[in-house]
Design a protein around this nucleic acid. Structure first.
Lengths: 206, 206
DNA sequence: CGTGATCCTGACCGGTTGGTCAAACTATTC
DNA sequence: GAATAGTTTGACCAACCGGTCAGGATCACG
């Protein structure tokens, strides 16, 4: 892969199509379940042609994960110390839920990776992610010390937000199977539920 | 596989060792990532010998999933209409968390299966599981109608309980990576957090 | 002890997988 | 319209996969 600056038109098109197809395949079959043939077919290319743009299966996977981490942390990064604590956290929850609705494949790719021990992203988890969680946990603790938020362990609160929102992407099949015969309306339901739920849990008691 | 009654000593030992090793491998590598060689090595058997006890890879996997579903639903099944609503739900949360602590591999096996579209357990999901959720949701709605529980969509409440508790098994690596350098103490922390969290969210406001 | 049932193994097989390569084809540039 | 750089392909390969099989080792029991 040449540097972005020197990419030709065809290179831009084809790498994009490959990554798109690879996201489909990796997110539903997992790393080992995915095959180059399937990705190539999905991208409308031959297998050798695919390997002209990426040196290996591993490289495609790594490229997807690298592009993922930045966007994934963004909703938490936007938690604003100047806003109302409960509104801020509820807004964060809804941003995260929206990510599950719009980018379920990315969520599943991430889940697959963590499930298998996060061999390829452990560094990011123990680096950027950990630092961001530490920073925002301190902010939440600050809000709690001021009595503006129920005193609940901040890091586990963040875990619960990840869990509840990503659940609608990662366990989509199960959710649909149980909520059947509804359509996609369950994301709106989930938004209402999570708003009420977190608002109720976080509001301090007199 | 003979029926349990006619199983010899060696059959009992070896099928148990195979299922134990298979659980390890399937839960961390997924169905396609798992290989018979790895399972056989983990069980201390040769590959042909493994296939003497199970007719195929598929059969081992199916056997694991079949044994799983029964236990998996048990904590919810024990939700008691006679108890105090909030105590009952919190107790359910803690039972589920305990499952994540004691049986993380089973949780990951299940998660892997759902992530990949639940091709082999869709029937159970749309059958037993769906029926049980429907039954318990009705109970929760009843409690809410009596004003003993905050009015929060029951089925999504159940989803949130699954999500938050299973998170500590399925995303264990991530949780540890962020909470480092703690040991296993995070399960006790999680129990405290979830108790306070659900108690706060579910208690009706005056 | 013997004998039949159970258990185990090395060698093997067809299919699939990630990846290579030389050669042919196409786009861009002067 | 060459010459060059960039793109695509069919044929191929070694490694690995799930699974088979004939025969040998071991066990349980009369």
């Amino acid at each position: 892969m040449p540097t972005p600056a020197s990419q030709t038109r065809i290179q831009k098109e084809n790498t994009a199509r490959i990554l798109e197809a690879a996201l489909d395949v990796f997110s539903t079959l997992g790393y080992r379940g995915a095959t180059l043939d399937r990705i190539a077919r999905g991208a409308g290319l031959s297998k050798p042609n695919l390997l002209y743009y990426f040196p290996s299966k591993e490289a495609i996977h790594a490229s997807l994960l690298a592009g993922l981490m930045t966007n994934w942390l963004d909703p938490l990064r936007r938690l604003d110390s100047d806003g109302d604590p409960i509104d801020e956290i509820v807004a964060y929850v809804l941003r995260k839920l929206e990510m599950s609705r719009l980018y379920p494949r990315e969520s599943r790719l991430f889940a697959n990776e963590i499930l298998q021990g996060a061999p390829r992203i452990m560094d990011e988890i123990e680096g950027d992610l950990r630092a961001l969680v530490e920073e925002k946990s301190a902010l939440i603790a600050q809000w709690q010390a001021a009595g503006r938020l129920a005193p609940i362990e901040p890091r586990h609160l963040i875990f619960s937000i990840w869990a509840t929102t990503q659940h609608y992407a990662d366990f989509d099949v199960q959710v649909r199977g149980i909520l059947r015969p509804q359509g996609d309306g369950h994301f709106d339901e989930a938004a209402d539920f999570l708003t009420a739920f977190y608002r109720s849990a976080l509001t301090p008691r007199g």
